[in-house]
Each structure stands twice: as structure tokens, then as C-alpha cells.
Amino acid sequence: MENNNNLPEPDTRPDVKDPSRRDFLKKSALITAVALTPAHAVKAAEKHMDERIAEAFEKMPLSLEINGAPHNLMVEPRSTLLDILREQLDLTGTKKGCDLGQCGACTVHVDGHRVISCLTLGIMVNGKKVTTIEGLAKGDQLHPMQEAFLKHDGFQCGYCTPGQIMSAVACIREGHANSEHEIREYMSGNICRCGAYPNIVNAIQEVKEGGLPV
């Protein structure tokens, strides 16, 4: 096949002046501070100062409760709840499987509802209560859904498991676990590549039929 090199292609022109926010900061916030400073000093300090100022300007306060504990953080507005949990708070039970909201591995509860944490910016949950897999058990006593996953072997590699369990708990709470069919439908946002689907359905059904509070 001859390649159709005449088709449109991505714009790879060298950057025209990048009108980024950082440049804007440099021009506005810094402008008064550096007005009286000798030029060579400005140049030397520019990058470093820029960092400091950016830090102050670009981070926002985030107050939230995670697994019952209050957290007061400074985060970049672009940071996802998932990355904040995993990279800043070392709560690595919540998994990154796609970072695109397509696999469900990062499912957590926000004010009791299941949420895809990779599509949730941290600042969106300001003032809210977040529950992650680490907060589901009561000390050494596992949540009934965790017990059921163990008993029914609702996993193999375990990587999608925290998301599956958080989703499964929410699935029952939402009232969407009334039949195998309904469970399958409402658990379809959580991909398991090892293929534990039937075991997961069985675990959820057992918890639902057991009637224990979830």
C-alpha cells in the first residue's frame, strides 16, 4: 500500500510564543517585584522565583476526610483524587488501571457514592468524605464484601479488586443487586482482565442475600 502522505497530519510547527499561564505570571505577578532589580540578577533568579511563585499561585487548599481522618492539603487543581491518594498520601490500595475512567480500578466512595477517582480532580471533593479500600474493614474485621470476595475467589492478580469491592458495596447500597443480571449490568464498569466475573457476582449475591449491613 502506498502511504497517503498528503493527508492532514498533526501540527508540528515550532512553537509560536507559548502564551502559557506561567509566562503570564512572570509578566504580571513578578513585574513589580523585579522592576527595581538589576537585569542579570533577574535572569538568574527568574527560574527559581518562578517556581516559588508558581507553587503559591498554582496550589489550592483541599480539606477532606479520608477513611474518617481529616486531611488538609495543598494540591494542584489538575491533580486527580487518584494521584493525590496514591502519590501524596500513600494510600495505594486505590489502583490506576487506565487513568481514563474506563476500567473502574480506581473506584472510591465520595459521601457514600461510588466515584471514579481518576476522573475526579482532588479539589472537587473539598469538604467531602472519601472512603477507600483501606477504610472498608473495621480494624482486623473485614467488611462482609471483603470476606465474600475471599470465599468466592473474586479475583486472581488482585489489581482490580479494590475497585471491584468498592463498586460492589455501592451496587448493593444503590439497590442494584437484586438479580445476577442486575449485578452484571451495574458491575460492568469494573474490568477484570483475569476474568473473575462469575466469582464476583457470586460474592455480591451472597452478601446481598446475607442481609448484613454494607
Binding site: 494510600l91 495505594t92 490500595g93 486505590t94 477507600t132 479500600i133 483501606e134 472498608l136 474493614a137 473485614l142 471483603q146 470476595f149 475471599l150 470465599k151 475467589d153 479475583f155 488482585g158 479488586t161 479494590p162 469491592i165
Partner: peptide, 13 residues
């Protein structure tokens, strides 16, 4: 049961 199952269901794995 999977011997590492408890770690996997609690997010500690």
C-alpha cells in the same frame, strides 16, 4: 482461600 487474598481485598498488597 488464596493465601495472599486478605492483602488483596484490603488494599495492602
Amino acid at each position: 482461600d488464596r493465601v495472599d487474598g486478605r492483602l488483596k481485598v484490603t488494599g495492602k498488597a
